[in-house]
Simulated scan of single mutants.
Amino acid sequence: MATSSAHCIVFANEKGGTGKSTTCVHTAVALSAQGLSVGVIDLDSRQRTVTRYLENREATISRREISLPLPAYEVFEGTEVAGLDAAIDRMQEICQVVVIDTPGRDDPLARHAATRAHTLVTPINDSFVDFDLIGQVDPENFKVKKLSFYAELMWETRKARAKTDGVSIDWVVLRNRLHNNEARNQKRVGEALTELSKRVGFRVIPGLSERVIFRELFPSGLTLLDKGHLGDLGISHVAARQELREMVGGFALPFGQRTGAGSAAERSAA
């Protein structure tokens, strides 16, 4: 395993439909817009959602003859851990940040990718269906009864990484697809997450609300940060952009809010 100062962000969740790939792409583009060199590795060689999104983005740049921040990206189609390590090492040699999207299922390469993370992001929908991935609750009082297998796995992964090279993996649970009309459910899920976070040591931050625009942007590969190329945005879309910025800020990455070529380009597109 190569030694590198590149920061590795791994998006991992063994359950599909949590908005994982959407948050992965938007995070990668947001960091690119800050002037950071970003590389994306897509481990889901079947769905290829992140790759398709970035391919669409590259095609839009060419078709419209515009300049937009575009991370480097590749699909890893191998099956061996050694091959994945080599791919990550290569990307870390040329990028300041490596973002890895994993399949929404139990996958040995996804588990290994988590061991390479500096920041491990687990998006979940704001429901007890998704909460069950990391913990089980009492059906009467919604108190946490026990950890799930996945939470135990991530706990052991973080301990092993700290013992191996002294790196403390920052595990972030991302509450995606919040609904304003589900206040009681949000409160119960939030309380359960807070209780579990104290046991396991992850952080909880708000993610992205359920919005149609995220599905509409996919064919063009554009993101909410691409101001000036999206047409007139309503107030709800402006709010979604702010959610995105707050989400990326909540990751507390070791870069801060950068200024420079990337952020200036974003301002000029406003």
Rank of each mutant, 00 (worst) to 15 (best):
M154A: 04
V173P: 03
G135L: 02
W171E: 08
F149A: 12
L153A: 10
F149S: 09
H112P: 06
N141L: 06
D101H: 14
V144N: 06
V173Y: 09
L174K: 12
V97M: 06
A113I: 04
I100Q: 11
L133C: 08
R90Y: 03
Y150T: 08
M154N: 03
F128N: 03
R111P: 00
D130Y: 02
N141S: 07
P123E: 11
N141Q: 03
T119F: 05
D138G: 02
S168I: 12
D138H: 06
D106I: 15
N176E: 10
W155C: 12
I134T: 00
G104W: 05
N180A: 15
L147N: 11
H179P: 04
A162D: 09
M91W: 00
I100S: 10
I124Q: 10
W171C: 07
D132S: 14
A117M: 10
I100G: 09
W171S: 04
I94E: 13
L153K: 10
K159M: 10
D130T: 03
R105K: 11
F142V: 10
L153D: 08
H118Y: 01
L109F: 07
P108T: 06
P108K: 03
F131D: 02
E152S: 13
H112W: 09
N125R: 10
E93H: 08
N180K: 15
F128L: 02
W171L: 08
D89Q: 07
L133E: 09
D107S: 02
P139C: 01
S127A: 02
W155I: 12
T157F: 04
N180R: 14
G104A: 06
A114I: 13
R116L: 14
G166W: 07
D138Y: 01
T164V: 15
L174C: 11
T102Y: 11
L153E: 12
L109P: 01
N176L: 12
F142W: 09
V99D: 03
D106H: 15
A113D: 06
D165I: 05
L178W: 10
K145A: 06
V129W: 05
G135W: 01
R116D: 09
R175I: 12
L120F: 08
R90I: 07
V144F: 03
S168D: 15
C95M: 07
A114T: 15
N176M: 14
G104N: 09
M91Y: 04
I124H: 08
H112F: 09
V99F: 04
C95E: 09
A151C: 01
Q92W: 01
R158M: 05
L178I: 14
A162I: 10
R161Y: 00
D138A: 00
I134P: 01
A117N: 08
L174F: 11
V121L: 11
E93A: 14
F131I: 01
R177F: 15
L153V: 01
A110Q: 02
V99S: 00
Q92P: 10
R111E: 15
K163C: 01
T164K: 15
P103I: 01
R111L: 15
E152R: 15
E93R: 13
D132R: 11
L174D: 13
G135E: 03
K143G: 09
V173E: 11
R105N: 07
W171H: 12
R111C: 13
E140D: 13
V167A: 12
D106G: 13
D89Y: 02
T122P: 02
P108M: 02
T119I: 05
I124E: 08
R158E: 04
V144C: 05
R158F: 03
V137S: 04
L133S: 09
H179A: 14
T102R: 11
R105W: 00
R177I: 13
